[in-house]
């Protein structure tokens, strides 16, 4: 088969066809800083730097996407919240900016045009789009309206809100939906090929299915319907098997799956409805040998590669800063070795 571009490869697999090889996404959100000799904070301060870092990461490891994502709390920053930068890890949201549920009634979504931090993200995506020449998909990311309150008000107060103050919960969802849709569509306009709808709170690890169907599910359905491009729902290593059919019903096209669940079973549940994205263990990856990397890649491809509908990636949505270059090279080489279609020669390797 003639070699495809990354974009062709990804579109083929999302159309449940086998491309030339299994596509793989390396979510190297921070490694570009090291490549450019910058601190993580400096790196994220300018869209030009993030774009350059992403392009260099792809030149090194040959993966099939460019990450148009900076850091999750960039949204918190836009809302006026605090972001805590670290020298060796992703920026974190600081103290919650919603200090009591009563403040929800006065909340209004930030303007994207007036948020310098969001504008830098859009600038990065514009540059990637212009330099990648339409051959590489650019992943934009939004935190779902249902999951954003963990950063906005803290996890425990948010769970209390869900259980005890349904009207304020609905109000918060309405405000967050407005922001999320605008932010997703701004990224699509800037050059993102599709949007990762980051929704860990909807995972079966966090809420049971009956609660999901009353909360995260309708929120996702309403929000995704208004996003003017394809979405992939990501649960950040949370379990999804019990809600796969529901997630497909939200209108999303792909799902990020966990190493905690059997990949073959998940793929069967998703077949024909959702492209499976996953499920390498990025936390363990830090100390993988070449053999560990090859075994993990080979097993994942054996479990989920057949028939397309599969993108190899880590299961967290972000590869930690501590994962060294040799591991990333070993993953890339293993996909090229074991991911060529047809996959007849790939069997699970203990």
């Amino acid at each position: 088969m003639t070699a495809m571009t990354s974009l062709q490869r990804v579109l083929a697999t999302m159309g449940n066809r086998e491309p030339d090889r299994v596509p793989y996404f390396l979510s190297l959100t921070m490694h570009g800083a090291r490549e450019l000799g910058l601190s993580i904070k400096e790196y994220f301060s300018k869209g030009e730097l993030v774009a350059e870092g992403q392009l260099r990461m792809r030149a090194k490891y040959g993966h099939d996407c460019l990450n148009g994502f900076s850091y999750a709390p960039v949204e918190v920053e836009a809302w006026g919240g605090e972001v805590i930068f670290s020298d060796d890890g992703p920026p974190n949201s600081g103290a919650p900016f919603i200090r009591s549920p009563e403040e929800i009634g006065r909340l209004t979504p930030p303007s994207i045009a007036d948020s310098p931090c969001l504008q830098e993200v859009l600038k990065a995506q514009q540059i990637m789009k212009s330099r990648a020449g339409g051959e590489v998909p650019i992943v934009g990311v939004v935190v779902s309206p249902f999951s954003a309150p963990v950063m906005q008000m803290g996890f425990a107060p948010y769970l209390d809100l869900i259980f005890e103050q349904p009207s304020l919960f609905e109000r918060l969802m309405a405000v967050n939906e407005e922001f999320c849709v605008a932010w997703a569509n701004a990224q699509l306009a800037a050059g993102a090929t599709f949007i990762c709808y980051f929704d860990p709170v909807s995972s079966a690890s966090i809420v049971p299915r009956d609660l999901y169907l009353k909360t995260g599910f309708p929120v996702a359905k309403r929000t995704i319907a208004r996003i003017k491009g394809a979405t992939a729902t990501h649960f950040a290593s949370g379990r999804c098997l019990s809600v796969v059919g529901d997630v497909a019903d939200t209108g999303t096209k792909a799902i990020g799956v966990s190493v905690l669940e059997d990949l073959k079973t998940v793929k069967e549940a998703c077949r024909g409805r959702l492209t499976v994205v996953g499920n390498l263990n990025a936390i363990e990856m830090r100390h993988w040998s070449d053999e560990d990397a090859e075994r993990s890649v080979r097993n994942a491809i054996a479990a989920a590669g057949a028939g397309g509908g599969f993108i190899l990636a880590d299961n967290h949505g972000e590869i930690p800063w501590q994962v060294p270059e040799p591991v990333l090279y070993a993953i890339a080489e293993s996909v090229r070795r074991w991911g060529r279609y047809p996959l007849a020669q790939v069997e699970e390797h203990g």
């Binding site: 869900i162 690890s205 609660l211 905690l260």
Partner: peptide, 14 residues
């Protein structure tokens, strides 16, 4: 039960 994937964190919290 949570470790086995049978329960969710919100249930443990409550």
């Amino acid at each position: 039960s949570w470790e086995a994937g049978e329960l969710a964190l919100s249930q443990i919290y409550m």
